[in-house]
């Protein structure tokens, strides 16, 4: 029997589900190994009977917790898809600011009518079995992880910094160009895709498990930085990780 698979989305740009569609012919192959029972963006049919649930997006309001818990109850495996789901993603930028101010800026004097709370990854609400990081997710990594899950294996998710991949790609260090980069503390797995394109590492895959001990120290020492300094200087994607560690 093919495993039944469903996709769900919460606060997000739906760009990760788009990467699944962007698998093109590979998606057709994948569909030979699974039974897709729910994918609102692409199909009319829907069923609550599924084995694997892929969830894109952050939880940003209390009432969404109920829907997440229902998905958890229905699914054998819950996979967080993309930064918004795995680490809270860009949505957590608002967590850096005073919540009342943010709500007033958007809703004016009626702000109290609108439920919202600090944006969070889904494992702040329900247990997840696997995280596919990235903003957006890397299609090759998605395929590898799904293959492992279908074969009942534990997928490989790196716990070393982007610098490792970046060095192997022979990039000039971003710090060398006078820019700030969070590669030394960010989880690898994207093949340093942004630095390869002339940009910096923005941190979309979240922090490695122990940034203070496992960061790429060689780079940090060379530029006289500590892991915390890098994290605090540039935190587009670390809103939840910072928020959770402070509260």
């Amino acid at each position: 029997m093919k495993p039944k698979v469903a996709f769900f989305d919460f606060a997000s740009c739906e760009g990760d589900q788009l990467q699944v569609v962007n698998l093109e012919e590979q998606l057709l192959e994948l569909l030979g190994h699974i039974e897709l029972v729910s994918f609102r963006e692409g199909m009319k049919e829907h069923s609550d009977n599924y084995d694997i649930a892929f969830i894109e997006g952050s939880c940003t309001r209390p009432q969404d917790e109920e829907r997440l818990k229902k998905i958890r109850a229905n699914a054998k495996l819950v996979v967080a898809l993309g930064s918004c789901a795995t680490i809270g993603g860009i949505n957590c930028l608002k967590n850096h600011r005073d919540a009342i101010t943010v709500r007033k800026e958007v809703y004016g004097d009626k702000y109290e009518l609108f439920d919202t709370y600090p944006a969070r990854p889904i494992d702040a609400v329900i247990k997840t079995d696997c995280k596919i990081h990235g903003c957006p997710i890397n299609r090759t990594e998605f395929v590898n992880i799904v293959k492992a899950l279908l074969m009942g294996q534990k997928p490989f998710i790196p716990d070393y910094p982007i610098c490792v991949e970046c060095k192997m790609n022979g990039n000039v260090c971003v710090f060398e160009k006078g820019m700030t980069c969070v590669g030394p503390v960010t989880r690898a797995g994207c093949n340093s895709c942004c630095v390869n394109e002339g940009a910096i590492c923005w941190g979309c895959r979240g922090l490695i498990d122990n940034p203070n001990t496992d960061a790429h120290k060689e780079v940090l020492e060379k530029y006289g930085l500590t892991a915390n300094e890098v994290i605090n200087k540039f935190k587009l994607y670390f809103g939840w990780e910072n928020y959770a560690s402070k509260s």
Binding site: E14, L18, L93, E105
Partner: peptide
Amino acid sequence: AMVVGQKWDVLHHITSRICGI
């Protein structure tokens, strides 16, 4: 509200995330 307080050279990175398509 998210872009308020952010620097001019990161706004395009943030607002790109409004929409995947």
